[in-house]
Amino acid sequence: MNPKVKRILSAFCYFSLFFAPFLFPAVIYFAVQDRGVTCHAKRSFLSHLFPLIAIPLGIIISAETEFNMTAIIISVILFGLTSFAVMVWNIIQGIKVFTR
């Protein structure tokens, strides 16, 4: 496989957070035979799982505390900021892979 195509596929796995968060990395993981590309696909897929788990967890915590304002603020700060950090991490990783 062409090295340029490998870089593009690997970078798109990270950037797919914006257009196909789970589908694109999963398809690339199973469809491409290159070890480097599948490694990036797996890493990006796992990083896309975090917001999927964090946001409902924050809602559950808020509901269990009877929508206490303090619990809502802590949940938003904790899960919202970490989800944002994961998004930034995916962008940085995609840029790093693409520019190598």
Rank of each mutant, 00 (worst) to 15 (best):
V27T: 07
I59Y: 12
S83N: 06
G36V: 02
I91K: 06
Y14S: 14
F84I: 13
V32P: 04
P25S: 06
A11L: 08
M87A: 11
V97W: 00
A54I: 05
I77G: 12
Y14A: 05
R100I: 03
H48E: 03
Q33L: 08
T99L: 07
I28Y: 02
I77Q: 09
L52I: 13
G80W: 06
S44E: 02
I74E: 09
R35E: 13
K96V: 09
N2Q: 11
G80Y: 12
G36Q: 08
G58Q: 01
V76K: 08
I55E: 09
G94C: 07
V88T: 08
F24C: 00
R7D: 11
P3K: 14
F84W: 14
Y29A: 10
F12Y: 13
A31D: 02
T65P: 01
S10M: 06
V32T: 09
I60F: 13
S83C: 12
S16G: 10
A20W: 08
T65D: 04
S47Q: 04
T99F: 07
L78W: 05
I60K: 01
G58M: 07
A71C: 06
V5R: 15
T38D: 12
L46Y: 10
Y14F: 12
V88L: 13
L57E: 09
Q93S: 09
I28T: 08
R7S: 09
K6P: 01
I55S: 02
W89D: 13
F98H: 14
T82Y: 10
H40P: 03
F45H: 02
F12I: 07
I55P: 00
R43I: 07
K4D: 15
I61N: 04
V88N: 11
I53C: 11
M87C: 11
R100S: 11
Y29F: 14
F45G: 01
S75G: 05
